[in-house]
Write a protein that binds this DNA or RNA. Sequence first.
DNA 1: CTGTATCCTTCTCGATACTG
DNA 2: CAGTATCGAGAAGGATACAG
Lengths: 149, 149
Amino acid sequence: MEEGTSESPSHRESTVDHGGADPFQWDTREDCQVRQILDRIADKWSLLVIALLDNRRLRFTELRREIDGVSQRMLTVTLRSLERDGLVKRTVHPVVPPRVEYELTSLGRTLHTTIQSLVTWTEAHQKEIAAARTAYDTRAARAAEATTP
Amino acid sequence: MEEGTSESPSHRESTVDHGGADPFQWDTREDCQVRQILDRIADKWSLLVIALLDNRRLRFTELRREIDGVSQRMLTVTLRSLERDGLVKRTVHPVVPPRVEYELTSLGRTLHTTIQSLVTWTEAHQKEIAAARTAYDTRAARAAEATTP
DNA sequence: CTGTATCCTTCTCGATACTG
DNA sequence: CAGTATCGAGAAGGATACAG
């Protein structure tokens, strides 16, 4: 597998070294911890997997069917990453044909809860964002039309 | 500019159409609203910009200096996206040389607040995640060594 | 100073084929 | 059923040059 490991090829230590006493200081470095988590939950499929696994155990094919559009490859890669991070538990039943089930770990469930606040924010503000986009695009269009009348 | 517009080339309406009464139903579609917001804050630089702009007005060059590693191009692209979404306000002072200042909008500040819960979660669980990764990698290494002794 | 335009490299992801 | 392996298209992002 050529990806999915994301074993930070960085030259710097990943451990945060806040200079002061600030409990939560944003990290301007590229290998920031928050960025790593965000990259995980914001990639194309992880969010959906975490959502669908909420309080359920699902088989590979069930996930694949529910997600609609995910390739076999990407579902595998996504699940491996989530498993590696301890967010998803993978259970292989030694039967034939193989039966593999996925479920959130307790850590995964706490992340799910946290993500909900983001979902809530999005639900609450999507109108504003849509409006801002429209306004911006309208202004941009008018500016372009002023340059080329 | 070949990017940054992200004018959803989707064939479907973006407005959410939950079938039932669930206040927050996850959307399995690709053009899900939450995904759009996540893509914004999880791209390589937006999170840092939002973080640095917290309660401050900064000039282009000041942002560039503070972010460390961002290219001129990507800072511009990032700021334009954030501005388009109504998260950042751009103020041009008609002087020469030009002076442009950026600050969070009130919408941007609420997003900043929301993101903090994710930062908090990350701070609280980064040890667990690191441990999970180590454990997974160790298991994987042992498995590989068992196949090729 | 604050951008925009272009080129070019790197990475991601999907399609496809094959396996235990 | 649940993957793994390989390949290629396209997007993202950095370097560089130029402009108002």
